[in-house]
């Protein structure tokens, strides 16, 4: 019984830890032909529509929310309010959202794309700018 409980608790702990680390691993990726050195600030401008030189695309939920909070310095609902404001005034469209595989293939095929994905999904077709 005791052993069972220990196993149960360590499993819970493990699950919690791994989910925390899964959340923490976000990768910002660009096309492998893109040699520009982009800071977090530059990336933030792209995802907030202040710099239109790159086409942003991101996944939804978990890792993307982490990116929104850390790099864009907003909560996901504040991010949504920010884009509601721009989109409904003709001032731009929010970054496209898609599943990880589509984000990666978009970045791999479009030299001007920049993507946000779970770093666990990253493959060799794209270049990792930084992870969080």
């Amino acid at each position: 019984m005791k052993l069972k409980q220990t196993i149960k608790y360590s499993l819970i702990t493990f699950t919690l830890l791994s989910s925390v680390s899964a959340f923490a691993e976000v990768a910002v990726v660009v096309n492998s032909g893109n040699s520009a050195a982009l800071s977090q600030d530059d990336v933030s401008k792209v995802f907030l529509g202040k710099n239109k030189s790159l086409t942003p695309v991101m996944t939804q939920g978990g890792p993307a929310d982490e990116f929104i909070e850390k790099v864009l310095a907003r909560s996901p609902s504040q991010y949504k309010a920010y884009w509601a404001k721009l989109a409904f005034t003709g001032g731009g469209r929010p970054p496209k959202t898609d599943n990880a595989a589509s984000v990666l293939s978009e970045v791999a095929s479009n030299p001007d794309a920049i993507g946000v994905v779970d770093s666990g999904a990253v493959n060799g077709d794209v270049k990792v700018l930084f992870t969080l």
Binding site: K80, A81, Y82, A84, K85, F88, T89, G91
Partner: peptide, 9 residues
């Protein structure tokens, strides 16, 4: 610009 978009303010 977003007078009616109450979600934005």
């Amino acid at each position: 610009d977003y007078l009616d978009v109450s979600y934005a303010y």
